[in-house]
Design a binder for these strands. Sequence first.
DNA 1: GCCGTTTTCGGCCCGACTGTTTTCAGTCG
Length: 575
Amino acid sequence: MNNRELSETFTLIANLLEIKGEVIYTTLAYRKAAESLLALAGDVNQLWKDEKLREIPGVGKSIAEKIDELLRTGKLAFLAKLEKEVPAGLAEWLQVSGLGPKKVSLIWKELGITTLQELAAAAKDGKLRTLPGMGEKSEAQILRGIESLSRRSGRIPIGRAWPLARQIIATLRKLPGVVAAEPAGSLRRMRSTVGDIDILVASRDSAQVMETFTMLPGVMEVRGKGETKSSIEFADGVRAQVWVHPPEKFGTALQYATGSKDHNVQLRQLALDKGLSLSEHSLAKTDGSGEVLCATEAEVYAALGLPWIPPELREGRGEVQAARAGTLPTLIEVKDIRADLHTHSTWSDGKLSMIDMARAAARRGIKVIAFTDHSLSLGMVGGLTIKGHAAQAAEIAAIQRELGDSILVLHATEVEIKADGSLDYPDEFLATLDLVLASLHTSLGQERDKVTKRLLQAVRNPHVDIIGHPTGRLIPDRPGADLDMDAILKAAAESGVALEINASPFRLDLEDVYARRAMEMGIPISINTDAHSEADLDMLPFGVAVGRRAWLTAEDVINTWPTEKLLDWLKRRGA
DNA sequence: GCCGTTTTCGGCCCGACTGTTTTCAGTCG
């Protein structure tokens, strides 16, 4: 079992315990452990072998024993017993909006049904309204919830959530009386996927904001509408919330709503140490002698004796300690990027010719562009033969003369790492290119050992400069190869190859936790757009955001280096 | 069930909103 599978197992346990009616803190403990497992930067199997499971936050004696049992036997007696008491199918019901553990348990026990289909039928037949505490409205809400569930497909890629959020915010900012409107939650922290869109507004006229918000075009359902908070769902299942606070409280409110939960817990603790109680509304003195209102986040952090912490760092991964110690990194910014080392042209599956692509990149301030068209075996996208490369090289020489020094064009390749681990071109040919980026696209479902060994071959090939989108994941549908990331990082540190953060919002691969470990191990990072069109070039901020979440400074990312330094690095490699 | 520079016991997530209520329970973020 890998980190994700273990995490899902503990989430299931938490859900079943909740329906069973276990004390809330027990289920919270399982959820916390599940989250930690998912966010883990290393392989849980390695921690298990090293007997270090207890070092995972939220994993104590009991959960460590359960992980041990799962990894040894693939089964868990505790879960089997639990499933005898509570049918596992009920866990799914919790995703129906309007249904919580109490109602699930009530419906199950009173009506004796366990599947989502039976639940829908019971609601349609008017059976739910016969239960205590439930009426026609609850019944209708549950029916809508089931429909909404079939519309929704899990978490929303940030590439989809962000443009929608910008639109909503722009609309709200135009309203009279609105002083500020900002994204919050995981969207503001720039997580690669978000559960929903959270927006915070500073205004004294809450009614008008709520009116506008709930009447936005495309709204399918108003899930709630109050004075301080409203919630909507769009036709495609995306949900959005807005909170309205008076301007003088906007700082504490935005800080609170941005999270993460772990970050806020640590901040509240720090506040308590200073005799302050931090809430959504204010910083109150715990002795009751008054409260401080904060209009900006900077004031909140300053009151706690901290510099403002960028939202991307607020994951409870040491940023509060770093802020206290004055050692927060100066995070990389989009404007620091001057090279795009992974792009496609019409030589393979790109939409634009090289010169059009180079010009589009130059207009965006890019000084070096590498064309990494696909290699031979990726036939369906028109991979290049070696002969084709000769023709591409000639074209590059020609367009370089035309482009002058506005942008430097590198002749490169995205060479396929084949199922057996060999590369698609011979080493002698790779040695002739300016840059070699090697990627996995096929056979991603291989066993961990096999797929890891396969990638290791590419990591150790001296001609390979960058490993493109290392796991091959696609958000939100494909989880990516089950790599032993500890082994990959170790090998990368030895070989000096760069690992890519692919900026496509549907890849964002490496993930932040691995990128951070790579940086700590001294592995160079490369942030690239993997652009197949002009619009793709504008996805760069999503890749930079992953870098910021990984605590990267500009120096850690080869795309920020002066051209001479970058070319030197490329020359030293691949010899 | 986890955790600890005040605690090995007693805190942890609390406030807004909705619906079915008749003063509150359940859900949600």
